[in-house]
Design a binder for these strands. Structure first.
Lengths: 140, 140
DNA sequence: CATATATAAGACTTACAAAGTCTTATATAT
DNA sequence: ATATATAAGACTTTGTAAGTCTTATATATG
């Protein structure tokens, strides 16, 4: 079995939604976010580093420091987070490079799978952090 | 990077399309199909065994033996082949069991990802082996 | 009936990548 | 000065996909 969204990506998503929840109230420490979201602390550190490199979060060092979202939660898509952590979303490896497969010329699957890949990417593009946040806390 | 369709699944798909190509002309030996589709022979054997267990192909032992499709190519979907080889298609492991995640009650991602998973499965349900075959050989 | 050709089954090994841990360095609020 | 936080990356563990090997069994055909 293969998950399109891996465990670490799931963790990163939770952390990002956590930051979204406290957006505007100053930085959130990794320790706090990790604890609240049930993510192993050391892993959370590494994930935050990746998210920082891709500018999805800003950091402030020192006490009272932590991470905060780089943009408004309505401007960060699920796909950005996913691809930051686990790389480009792929249906089949033959779709990641134009010349990845020499059989592609008489391959009936390629076109179909490319179509699906496009749909999936687009779907995740259209979901934003604030949607996830409001969706989840709707009932309260 | 994660491929929704793994390498072995890709191999199995090629083998199945090969059988579809010769459908009605008696069994195809694994050796022949593997060679024609560029699949390592021993791997092809294991894949054919899985396909046989799930009734997607019929086998005939002995010389002049080999495998043939269990049903007409128009009645075998891409999803059946994929799930026979690599198990259920999953967007996130939290979607595979009703109680896989205790956070699901206030999780905004779950609904969206379930929707996507449903779309992907349905998409692959609607593609059949004979479509793949005709798509690929259209130009000839 | 002997033999060559095919599948059947599963143990075993290898290779790779994800997940998780540990260590050291650096910045800053108080 | 010190405690608290991030920064960075080496390292270990674990899981699983991919690939190989071995032995058994069925059957067409001379």
């Amino acid at each position: 079995m293969v998950d399109v969204v891996r465990r670490n990506t799931d963790y990163a998503l939770r952390l990002m939604v956590n930051l979204a929840r406290y957006h505007g109230n100053g930085p959130v420490s990794t320790r706090a976010a990790a604890k609240e979201e049930g993510v192993p602390y050391q892993l959370a550190c590494k994930l935050m580093q990746k998210l920082h490199k891709s500018k999805l979060v800003k950091s402030r060092m020192g006490p009272k420091g932590g991470f905060s979202l780089g943009r408004d939660p309505s401007q960060i898509s699920l796909r950005e987070v996913v691809e930051t952590i686990q790389g480009p979303i792929s249906i089949n490896r033959c779709l990641l490079a134009a010349d990845a497969c020499k059989r592609q010329h008489d391959c009936g699957a390629r076109t179909k799978l490319a179509e699906l890949q496009h749909y999936v990417r687009d779907f995740l593009d259209r979901i934003t952090l604030d949607e996830l946040l409001h969706n989840g806390r709707e009932k309260e």
